[in-house]
C-alpha cells in the first residue's frame, strides 16, 4: 500500500499546495498578524517544510526546533485557536486540490501531533 505522502503526490503536491495554503493563511484575519513583516520567500520555504512533514514526507522536524521556532509567537499570544485555524486552512487547501477526505484527516492528525511543541506546552 502506498504511503500518505505518495498518495497526496509527494514534492509536487507540496509545490502545488504551498501558495494556496500560504495565501489562505495571509488572508485569514484570525492569524494573519503573526505573518506581518516576515520575509515571504523564507516563510514559503518554512511552509514547504511544514507541508512535507504534515503530508508524512521526509523531514527534519523535531520537538526542540518546533518549540524554539514558535517561542516568540507564543509570547505574542499564539494559542490553540490559532493552531486550529492553520490546520483548518491546511484541510481546505487539500480539499481544493482534490485530496481524499480520509487522507486530509490523516494530514490533520500528523499536523495535530506537533500541537504541544508549537504552542510550547
Amino acid at each position: 500500500m502506498s504511503s500518505l505522502y505518495e498518495r497526496i503526490g509527494g514534492a509536487a503536491a507540496v509545490d502545488a499546495a504551498v501558495d494556496i495554503f500560504y495565501r489562505k493563511v495571509l488572508a485569514d484575519d484570525r492569524i494573519s498578524d503573526f505573518f506581518e513583516d516576515v520575509d515571504m520567500d523564507r516563510q514559503i520555504g518554512k511552509q514547504k517544510a511544514f507541508l512535507t512533514m504534515a503530508f508524512g514526507g521526509p523531514n527534519n522536524y523535531d520537538g526542540k526546533s518546533m518549540r524554539d521556532a514558535h517561542k516568540h509567537l507564543v509570547a505574542r499570544g499564539l494559542d490553540e485557536n490559532h493552531f486550529d485555524a492553520v490546520v483548518e486552512n491546511l484541510a481546505n487547501t487539500l480539499g481544493e486540490l482534490g485530496v481524499a477526505a480520509e487522507d486530509i484527516a490523516e494530514v490533520g492528525e500528523i499536523a495535530g501531533s506537533v500541537r504541544g511543541d508549537v504552542l510550547n506546552h
Binding site: V18, D19, Y22, R23, L26, A27, D37, D39, M40, I44
Partner: peptide
C-alpha cells in the same frame, strides 16, 4: 518591496514568479 510582494501574491501571482 515587501508590501507589494505580499499584495501581488494575494492577487494570485505565484510566489515563484515574484522577483524582488
Amino acid at each position: 518591496v515587501k508590501q507589494l510582494q505580499k499584495h501581488c501574491f494575494l492577487l494570485g501571482a505565484s510566489s515563484k514568479e515574484i522577483f524582488c
